[in-house]
Amino acid sequence: MTIRVMVADDQELVRSGFAMILDAQPDIEVVAEAADGAEAVEAVREHAPDVALLDIRMPRMDGIEACRAIAAHGGCRTVMLTTFDADEYVFEALHAGASGFLLKDVRRDDLVHAVRVVAAGDSLLAPSVARRLVERYTAGGPARTDPRLDALTGRERETLLLLARGLSNAEIAAELVVSEHTVKTHVGNVLAKLGLRDRIQAVICAYETGLVTPGTPPAGGGAGTAVSPA
């Protein structure tokens, strides 16, 4: 199955470079390019790509607003690309609906890997972004446990904790000594009860609510921290 991709960046050379790298892959086709966020949203509506690569800083409409519009439209997952890794961009992008966040100095192979990971329904964060999540929500020590967690059963809390550590469904199943099907059920219940969109939001929630402490950082390495689909 071919992964359809749209690339948006206001710098033509950067945009063309990413498009060339991706289009050279046998399982990826770049179906559109855009020079700003407004063009990106229109391109997604017209070409229905599976994945949109969005630069954060673009004229007319920035990547975060474009991401929010694309997420509302549905059917296309987004990966944010930027030279900046300041906290406000990371968190705004994730809350806008991004499924991945990479810096522009990402290696060629890691860029391709990120597109495949996100197209498969997973989520991915650059290692530096994952570290920032840990630092932001563990600064000053463990937080008081949030009452939102009261909605979860004990097993669902365990599942959320293991999600925040970066474990896959198979690894969670082994840890809890249950089937992967049961894990998927627990993950779905966690997302539904906490009103979360995906597993990246679940990881953020685990830190926000104080469930995760500095002793349990998410796993990382390679292109980034991949978070498997529910």
Rank of each mutant, 00 (worst) to 15 (best):
C76R: 02
R132Y: 01
V177Y: 04
V90T: 06
T159C: 15
L162Y: 12
E88C: 02
A170V: 14
M80V: 08
G100F: 01
R132K: 15
F101I: 01
E156I: 11
H113T: 11
S128F: 02
L152Q: 09
G166T: 00
G100L: 00
E175N: 12
T159D: 02
T159G: 05
D87K: 11
P147E: 08
D85N: 12
K184P: 00
C76F: 03
L176T: 04
C76T: 15
E175D: 13
E171T: 07
D150Q: 13
L160P: 09
G75F: 06
S168Q: 11
P147T: 08
G166C: 03
G141W: 09
R107W: 01
G140F: 12
A126R: 01
V129C: 05
K184F: 13
V118G: 02
S123W: 07
S179N: 09
L149P: 11
R157Y: 02
G154L: 08
H181E: 14
R157T: 13
V177A: 13
R108F: 11
Y137A: 00
A96E: 10
D109L: 11
L160T: 09
E88L: 09
T138P: 04
E158S: 14
C76G: 04
P147Y: 09
L102Q: 14
E158G: 06
S179R: 10
L149A: 11
D150H: 12
A114I: 08
F91L: 10
P142M: 06
S123P: 01
A119G: 12
E180R: 15
P127L: 05
A86C: 02
G141A: 07
R107T: 10
E180D: 15
E180P: 10
A139D: 12
A139C: 02
L176C: 04
D122P: 00
V79Q: 01
R116V: 06
D105K: 08
D150F: 07
R131H: 10
Y89K: 04
D85C: 08
L124Y: 00
D122E: 14
F91I: 11
E135I: 06
D110Q: 13
L133V: 15
L160Y: 07
V118C: 03
G166W: 03
E158P: 01
G100S: 07
S123E: 14
L176Q: 12
A151W: 06
R148M: 11
R157K: 15
R148Y: 08
A143W: 03
T145H: 08
N169C: 12
R144A: 15
L176G: 05
L111V: 10
S168G: 09
A98I: 04
R132N: 10
L167Y: 13
S179G: 11
A126P: 01
A174S: 14
S128A: 14
P147N: 08
H181F: 12
K184V: 07
L94N: 07
R108L: 02
